[in-house]
Design a protein around this nucleic acid. Structure first.
Lengths: 226, 226
DNA sequence: GAGGTTTGTATCACCCGTTCACAAACGCCT
DNA sequence: AGGCGTTTGTGAACGGGTGATACAAACCTC
């Protein structure tokens, strides 16, 4: 469902509104802050229930809690990060884990130089452990994050799957083949840049294309997904 | 066009095939290595010409060059990276820039502690410069990358746009509003994780869902965008 | 209670992307 | 030279998502 891919965006916007002390918001305004149309927003929300009050709008706190509950944010999911290079470090120290309903269950790296080091994850701090500990850590993790070089990505993926992980987020520039029942979401910075580059070169050749194709004139937000 | 979003994936797979010394490949095999179906691959390629020979397949070298030319990889585009935290560092040292047709034109940060530091980008090395130098650097850059905290994202985005940058890749967990004619691709790790988390919880509740919905049983690859 | 506002929903057409099926073209083998 | 198996390239059907529209129901204010 395409709606599921947008709900986290709404949730994030609501979170900021909540912090800003705004108690009520209309579908039109929330939609604008999320990069969608108001009709789409209301249709998305209608799929999971009825949360607003007509004539007023949505209670920010209530809607936030409702979406969070529906997404299941209430009890955190364990995340194991494999590969503690620059990217892995950035992910480990990412503050969005706690607020988004996640908990870093473990850090893994192959490099003996890196294993044993302590990395601060949010409020706590974790020690990087060797690859052999993956199966053990995976007991407490439901999601695996691959931040290794591309050459190690498939192997890492196989190990994660063998450890029972069924949901993987990969940053490696490779297509990962997994058995049925396992879901992989891939974020490839190189691919994203090349898409942008193509658009850039296209608009450089025909700058008037934005007017000839009005549907692309509006800001486009690419999700990683799709 | 959705085809454009997949061409870089094909290009990458072809690049690895080329390095592996494989001279010819069929659409079926290349499709499998790219995570798509053969029909989709062939249709994608048909949009930009006819490259294969029937009964044989595609010449890896020729197809690689053709797609690269079509995407315009031949002359590198300048990329300016704003925000040199862990993520910014990871991006700056990313080796995919050179091979993907990019060139790091500059590094920007607000923190005086970070400004002036030298960061190795591929074969060369660059000095981090203050935000005020953005306009100057943007002369040589066509793409801007936002790797700042979310709180600084919109401001950074505005500065990039003011400097003439029209294509932006953002990693900040925020929806960025830009004027018409400017394209933003947003990669939000938190959103990706929440989508995965939802799927995880769903499959945990009804593990048989993979059989009841066979179209999701196969590995799914999410692009950041869509 | 009247009026204005906003949600929630139903319906419809449309467009894009995917999938299917098949003819055309090629190499190979005899 | 000609048939045969293989693979490309593509026209056509299919389906999901989107956007537009419309409108009734519900709420607040006055």
């Amino acid at each position: 469902m395409a709606t599921v891919e947008r709900l986290p965006v709404y949730l994030h916007a609501l979170d900021r509104l909540r912090r800003a002390g705004i108690a009520t918001i209309s579908s039109a305004e929330l939609a604008e802050r999320s990069g969608v149309t108001s009709a789409k927003l209301r249709k998305d929300l209608s799929h999971l229930g009825s949360f607003g009050t007509r004539g007023v709008g949505y209670d920010v706190e209530f809607l936030h809690r409702s979406i969070a509950d529906w997404l299941g944010v209430h009890e955190p999911l364990g995340v194991v990060i494999v590969g503690l290079g620059n990217l892995g470090h950035a992910l480990a120290t990412y503050r969005g884990f706690a607020t988004g309903g996640f908990r870093v269950a473990g850090l893994i790296d192959v490099d003996p130089q890196v294993v044993g080091r302590s990395v601060s994850c949010g409020d706590t701090s974790l020690v990087v452990r060797p690859v052999d500990d993956l199966a053990e850590i995976a007991e407490y993790a439901q999601i695996g994050v691959i931040a290794t070089p591309g050459s190690a990505a498939q192997d890492t993926c196989d190990r994660l799957v063998a450890s029972g992980i069924k949901h993987i987020l990969s940053f490696a520039p490779r297509f990962l083949s997994v058995p049925p029942g396992v879901e992989v979401r891939a974020i490839d910075v190189g691919v994203e840049l090349q898409i942008l580059a193509f658009r850039q070169r296209q608009s450089a050749v025909s700058p008037a294309s934005t007017t000839s194709r009005p549907r692309h004139a509006a800001p486009v937000t690419g999700a990683v997904s799709a």
